[in-house]
Amino acid sequence: MDESKAFVSTFLLALFVYLFLTLAAGRSMIEGSILWSVEELVLGISIALIVGAVGSSILCRSGNYRMLNPLRWLIILVYCVPLFVEMVKANMDMAYRVITGKIDPGIVRISPKLKTDLGITALANSITLTPGTLTVDVDDETGDLFIHWINVGKNPTKTIAGNFLPWIRRFAE
């Protein structure tokens, strides 16, 4: 069961990537539209089959099939908006620090209590992209993150990860 799930998810990802790359290129199925030609589709499906056979053990190493739910992908798309807002704030802050040179750095530990690898990764990358923080290391057992904070403040877990955690819990847990 797990193998077929892994194969299907890999197949879908591969097909999606291939179709995304070839969208609106070359001759289309219906004249004048942006869709794919029949040859392209056949090629895409066969490639996805091959890649699904080869890469399923890599993509689904963690045995986590939650992402097969399309709703979670929608949440990721929506999540991009607060992430972008945070990034704008972060970069304003960064610009201020670059220009003035006022820094008070330190490495702090936060415990987001996330269970899945995907969640930890998403959180770490979001943190790296946002306000004056940079993921330095991760504790493999507890999932605690060590953050280099450019301007150390109080209550690091809430301040740093507070905005992302609900979203990440929603799509990755």
Binding site: D104, P105, G106, I107, V108, T128, V136, D137, F146, V152
Partner: peptide, 23 residues
């Protein structure tokens, strides 16, 4: 960026002017 930071810390480069260093 995370990989480089982790490598730098493991090598033993201490953050300058750091007030706290939990790691």
């Amino acid at each position: 960026a995370h990989a480089i930071a982790r490598a730098a810390h493991r090598v033993g480069i201490k953050p300058k002017f750091a007030s706290v260093d939990h790691l």
